[in-house]
Write a protein that binds this DNA or RNA. Sequence first.
RNA 1: UUGGCUCUAGCUUAACCGGUAAAGCGCUACACUGUGGAUGUAGAGAACAGGGUUCGAGUCCCGGGGUCAAC
Length: 379
Amino acid sequence: MARLSFDLQHTDISSNARAGVITTDHGSIQTPIFMPVGTVGSVKGVTQQQLVNDVQAQIILGNSYQLYLRPGTDVLEKAGGLHRFNHWDKPILTDSGGYQVFSLAGTRKIKEEGVTFQSHIDGSKHLFTPERVMDIQRSIGGDIIMAFDECPPGGSEYGYAHKSLELTHRWLDRCFEQFLSTPDKYGYTQNLFPIVQGATYKDLRKQSCDYIASKEAPGNAIGGLSVGEPEPVMYEICDWCCQHLPKEKPRYLMGVGTPWNILECIGMGIDMFDCVMPTRNGRNAMLFTTQGVINIDNKKWEYDFSPVDEGLPGEVSHYYSKAYLRHLFKAGELLALTIASVHNLSFYLWLVGEARKHIIAGDYASWKTEMIVRLKTRL
RNA sequence: UUGGCUCUAGCUUAACCGGUAAAGCGCUACACUGUGGAUGUAGAGAACAGGGUUCGAGUCCCGGGGUCAAC
């Protein structure tokens, strides 16, 4: 039972992209990697078997805010942790709830101590402090757990971003103090990743990168991007952060993004991604394919009996036709949501796998440029 | 057969006294980035065939359909 390690195997000669292997007590992860989001302990609409066999997911997310509210840490502890509760034997990463408090909760009050907020489920009042969030994530039992941060909205003013960043850093100290003084609960090692903030301001981001790096955590995350700022700004800040974060540790860009976002950011040196887009947009009939973006709800697919995506190796994308999947969406069938989610996740995992191959082959930059044009095509 | 009620967009319903037709759902598109089967935005689409009164009719009259009740 050991701390998470990162074996950096290849650095692309044509870009800053890297290929590596992350090792945890629940197995290893080939990077760059995309991590499906499993908010309440399930990836919406997708079974664990489908995640393993069709999607070929190597690690999934869980959400502290959601799991704390329901079913509650008591149930998770009695179950023996989330891995046993949802029967997922591979690595799990849990988000701290910092983002959810900002995006989901109704009224919230941010103070030095922590955040008081109202549950989006029943309106009940709760207090999240860095210590409390560490305890919750200890109970959930993720292999990777995240620091409790404040995620200021895109376009935040410098003054606010600065104050927010300082608070996030003070909270980070408390997270580490609590994390290091509490034991692993289920016999395997948990790893705490700190999160860079600083909105769209380079000096704040650099300051944050330096502070985060000083924690010497086994991995580092970049938060507060794709929260409303223009895409070029997101790229610029991501690139900047990559330049200032340790090379020998995995870099995790939180909550991003579109397939082309992922390829661009891999080129900057990001190793890990998570995003709700493949599943959420999938449930809303948006398919990401090897040929471009499809809105399967569109009338033009009514009589198209070709497979959802012939270019993808996985079975799901060949098994069903576009016309059939459109029909299922129109009919409001549950199966539509599942097929779209499994397909999109398969595509995302295939995409990062291809990226890895081209990093190792040393032609990532040219492959990426060509690929992005194709993936952005609206079919 | 007689009497009452009723007829407006694909569906369900609005519109002061007669002044030039709105909405929800559905449909056609678009948006969605540490979750949202949600939501938002844009668009297409209508008066019971017909006739009359009137400067002007969804609105009044004749005629037609539906429905309920009595015979």
